[in-house]
């Protein structure tokens, strides 16, 4: 059997004294798109933060293997350089740091960590222009401070632009649909779909089925009370939409 892109084994995590993740098991093979659905407060966003390595959370048990390698001992920067990418639900506004400066620093930091040479400025400019075109991102937006004053849609498109430029092998999308109108949702979804690739896996976290009409998953997992309680095909999302989450809470109990 080939190594899965992401394997989460019995993951427990807490913030302060509150247990949030209570034994998550999840396997995502290379090239597959998996969705995690669950109601607010079920621990979905915590899962994304723990995967990316946010300091506030303490992992008390379990393992996370990225392409066969345990990443829990790595800091967020090292995980990113290994090919993990988190598209934030609420991208952080960073005053004083121009978006272009940030993009270049991120790309070159990852290349450096992988022992590759830095990208030249013309190559970088071309890459940004190409990636930005499909996402309707113009150069004016990229001159502004990172996410500062961006609309909800602009922030999400900027996340996907970063994903396109950084070419991660494992993408975690945390509620990428939140705050998007129908048109923006289509642009963002098209951007994500364009990055689907046999060597790239995705974990799409959402609580609405709507996003999954655009980004069609291979597998859907239902998340409740800090763990995966049910897994199935894409029709599971439709079932959830029809029945609500209550039925699955019993499975978690």
């Amino acid at each position: 059997m080939t190594t899965p892109m992401l394997e989460i084994r019995n993951l427990h995590a807490r913030i302060e004294d509150r247990d949030i993740l209570k034994g998550v098991n999840l396997i995502i093979p290379a090239g597959e798109v998996h969705a995690v659905m669950g109601r607010n407060g079920s621990g979905k966003s915590t899962l994304s933060y723990v995967l990316a390595g946010k300091q506030d959370y303490e992992v008390t048990q379990g393992e996370v293997l990225l392409d066969g390698e345990d990443i829990l001992g790595l800091d967020p920067g090292e995980r990113a350089s290994k090919g993990l990418f988190l598209a934030f639900q609420y991208p952080v506004e960073v005053p004083g740091v121009a978006t272009m400066t940030f993009l270049k620093a991120a790309i070159n930091a990852q290349r450096k960590a992988r022992g590759e040479s830095e990208m030249t400025t013309p190559d970088f400019m071309r890459a940004v222009k190409d990636a930005g075109r499909d996402l309707h991102i113009d150069s004016e937006m990229l001159k502004r401070a990172l996410n500062v004053g961006f609309s909800g849609g602009e922030k999400k498109r900027a996340e996907i632009l970063q994903m396109a430029l950084l070419r991660p092998k494992m993408c975690v999308l945390d509620e990428t649909d939140s705050g998007l109108d129908i048109d923006a949702l289509r642009v963002v979804s098209d951007g994500v779909n364009a990055l689907r690739d046999p060597y790239r896996s995705m974990l799409v976290i959402t609580h609405y089925q709507r996003l999954l009409n655009h980004i069609v998953p291979d597998v859907v997992h239902v998340f409740s009370d800090g763990r995966v309680v049910e897994s199935g095909g894409k029709e599971l999302a439709l079932e959830l939409e029809a029945k609500g989450y209550a039925e699955f809470d019993e499975a978690a109990a």
């Binding site: 990316a52 967020p76 920067g77 991208p91 960073v94 930091a109 990852q110 960590a113």
Partner: peptide, 12 residues
């Protein structure tokens, strides 16, 4: 902000 920048591969 630190977490956001680091999550993109930028060292601390």
């Amino acid at each position: 902000s630190m977490f956001y920048l680091m999550s993109r591969g930028i060292p601390r």
